[in-house]
Simulated scan of single mutants.
Amino acid sequence: MSEGGFDLGPRRHPRRMSLTPMIDVVFLLLIFFMLASRFGMDVALPIAGGAEGGATEWQGAPRLVDVTPDAVMLNGTTTAPSDLAAAVAELLPEPGDAVILRPREGTDLQRVVAVMDLLRTDGITNMILVE
């Protein structure tokens, strides 16, 4: 023993910290976030809100498409989905005029999107979605 203290042996140099475990964790996090994220473009639905129809005067007959969980109605009359676009086109004074889509209670979003796609494939692109 030395005077006035304890002998702890020869002085050791502090061991240098290894960065390997930290680099492993960073790579694991990178892989996790790459797998968890979604790449690619999300599909955007071009629809107008209810206020757009108020900016211009309404031209022609009413064009209200009610979408229910099990049927599609045009101006209150049940219409087959295959006949919907032709029936709506007959009511349009001009091809670019608006059609109002109104999902009814209990209708899921996928059903509304399917009706919108059905109309869009037949050339009806100006749709206003209301509650």
Rank of each mutant, 00 (worst) to 15 (best):
M1F: 04
S2A: 13
E3A: 13
E3L: 14
G4E: 11
L8R: 10
G9Q: 09
P10K: 08
H13L: 06
P14E: 07
P14R: 11
R15C: 02
M17Y: 08
S18M: 04
T20M: 10
T20I: 13
P21N: 07
P21H: 10
P21E: 02
P21V: 05
D24H: 13
V26M: 09
V26P: 01
F27Y: 15
F27D: 03
L28S: 11
L28V: 06
L28N: 02
L29S: 05
L29G: 07
L30T: 05
I31G: 07
F32P: 01
F33L: 11
F33Q: 06
F33A: 08
L35M: 07
A36W: 09
A36Y: 09
S37P: 01
S37Q: 12
S37I: 02
R38S: 07
G40C: 04
G40Y: 02
G40D: 05
M41R: 14
A44P: 01
L45G: 00
L45C: 02
P46G: 03
G49F: 05
G49T: 12
G49K: 00
G50N: 08
G54T: 09
G54N: 09
A55G: 03
A55N: 10
E57N: 08
Q59Y: 14
G60C: 11
A61W: 06
P62A: 06
R63K: 09
R63C: 07
R63E: 07
L64H: 03
L64I: 15
V65L: 06
D66V: 01
T68Q: 07
D70G: 04
D70T: 12
D70K: 07
D70Y: 15
V72A: 06
N75S: 03
N75K: 05
T77Y: 04
T78I: 09
T79A: 05
T79V: 12
T79N: 00
P81G: 00
S82H: 12
D83P: 01
A85S: 08
A86I: 04
A86Y: 00
V88Y: 00
L91P: 02
P93E: 06
E94T: 15
P95H: 04
P95K: 02
G96D: 11
D97L: 01
A98D: 04
A98M: 04
V99L: 06
I100M: 09
L101K: 04
R102A: 12
R102T: 04
R102L: 12
P103H: 13
R104Y: 00
G106M: 08
T107N: 07
D108V: 08
L109K: 15
Q110S: 15
R111D: 10
V113P: 02
V113F: 06
A114T: 12
V115F: 01
V115I: 11
V115K: 03
M116Y: 13
L118D: 09
L118Q: 10
L119Q: 05
L119M: 14
T121E: 08
G123Q: 11
G123V: 09
I124K: 01
I124H: 02
T125A: 13
T125E: 06
T125N: 15
N126R: 11
N126A: 10
M127R: 03
V130I: 10
